[in-house]
């Protein structure tokens, strides 16, 4: 579970890890009911409606206002860029 939390980029306390583990086990048991199905020759469904080849034209849409509003939503902006703490490793 700690590995899963790390992959999910969540910091969980020991209490939360314990609680979630129990709850997730119950849901995974529910998932285990799928074993009753023989799916050997069944293809997976990623989409309920079988579309293919949906494209857009290679045409630029540029809206300065939209861009400005999007940047304004940034938690921390410097020189028109999004500011973040150093990546691990760069700190040293």
């Amino acid at each position: 579970m700690a590995k899963v939390a790390q992959l999910a980029m969540l910091e969980l306390s020991d209490e939360e890890l314990d609680r979630f583990t129990g709850q997730l086990d119950a849901v995974l048991d529910l998932g285990g009911r799928l074993d009753a199905f023989d799916v050997a020759d069944v293809p997976p469904t990623a989409h309920p409606y079988g579309l293919t080849n949906v494209f857009r034209a290679d045409t630029v849409e540029n809206d300065d206002d939209v861009r400005a509003e999007a940047l304004a939503a940034g938690p921390e902006i410097e020189d028109g860029r999004f500011k973040v703490p150093p990546a691990l490793g760069e700190a040293l």
């Binding site: 410097e78 860029r81 999004f82 500011k83 973040v84 703490p85 150093p86 760069e90 700190a91």
Partner: peptide
Amino acid sequence: DAGYSLVDY
């Protein structure tokens, strides 16, 4: 102060 990064998309 370990510095920081600026991201351009």
